[in-house]
Design a protein around this nucleic acid. Structure first.
Length: 296
DNA sequence: CTCCAGGGAGCCT
DNA sequence: AGGCTCCATGGA
């Protein structure tokens, strides 16, 4: 077992691991202590969080002056990547819209960083997110791991990775419905099939210009513009992507009505113009802030 | 009971 | 392109 610590002094801007991992932007981390996300905010923010990347278990927790990690590999660079620790939050916020709402959201969760989830897990988890509450999206991903994820022996326990595309492609629609995926079950199966067969993969998306990348992603079954933006933002590092979900649409209605252009593509351009470069960063702060009861 | 949750597919015009 | 309608599930 490898372990280490990344001093917060080596990170540009604030870091808040809890806000980063419990803000509904990633469903691929969990608490090995068994605590359910969002049910007990009283633990002080120092709990361990766990995920699996390319067969390696990675755990992180926040201390007073560092991000501690332990892993089956030398995970320091990986942790920096996964948690967006190289993003310069000073610069990103400085360039953002400084209106009252966005300032309140940034102040409330200073240190929240945009994650870089592995592509396939991000894709599947946001296909599952359609018309579904955050807590239940976590539960669905856990069920997929337990049922289809490769087991890894780790410190005397068995940890399950997120399923490989082939494993979900081989599942039946009914099996996935039995995991309470509902009408998303065939979407997940068919998208997994596309990735596993090579019909459409991360390589067809990564590196393309933002709007073209979004268009490519909508080729997956169960992926429209909104889910595509989530994958671009939370996996591929397109920090300008602004997923237009129910919460940000509500914020547009209440605070930026001129940005509502009646269709996704034009509203997207308008809100990106409104929120500035790295608009996805501000969108994620707004999502977490509004959903947590801010802006009453 | 109804309403809603990080929407999208299929079908219609 | 833009507007329906339907789609599972569970908590408020």
């Amino acid at each position: 077992m490898d372990r280490g610590a990344i001093p917060t002094s080596d990170i540009p801007g604030a870091v808040d691991v809890q806000a980063t991992l419990e803000s509904g932007q990633t469903y691929l981390w969990w608490r090995p202590d068994g605590a359910t996300y969002e049910t007990d905010g009283a633990y002080g923010g120092s709990a361990w969080y766990r995920t699996v990347v390319d067969g390696d278990v990675v755990e992180v927790r926040q201390t007073a002056d560092a991000i501690e990690w332990r892993s089956t590999t030398d995970a320091a660079p990986l942790v920096r990547e996964l948690l967006g620790l190289d993003d310069d939050l000073h610069e990103i916020r400085r360039a953002a819209n400084g209106d009252d709402l966005t300032s309140a959201a940034w102040d409330a969760y200073d240190g929240l960083r945009i994650v870089r989830d592995p592509f396939f897990g991000c894709l599947v988890s946001f296909i599952c997110s359609a018309q579904m509450r955050v807590e239940r999206i976590f539960a669905m991903q856990e069920a997929l791991r337990e049922q289809y994820g490769a087991p890894i022996e780790y410190g005397g326990e068995t940890v399950h990775a997120f399923p490989e595309p082939g494993a979900l492609a081989a599942a039946t629609e009914q099996e996935l419905r039995d995991l309470k995926l509902g009408y998303r079950a065939p979407y997940v199966q068919r998208t997994a099939e596309m990735v596993a067969s090579g019909e459409l993969t991360e390589r067809d998306v990564r590196g393309r210009a933002y709007e073209l990348a979004r268009e490519q992603l909508t080729g997956f079954v169960g992926v429209g513009d909104k889910v595509a933006d989530c994958v671009l933002l939370f996996s591929l590092g397109y920090l300008e992507a602004v997923p237009l979900d129910t919460w940000i649409r509500s914020a547009i209605d209440d605070h930026y009505p001129d940005c509502d252009r009646g269709n996704y593509a034009d509203t997207s351009r308008a809100i990106r113009e409104q929120l500035g470069p790295h608009a996805g960063y501000t969108q994620t702060y707004l999502f977490h802030y509004l959903r947590s009861g801010g802006d009453a």
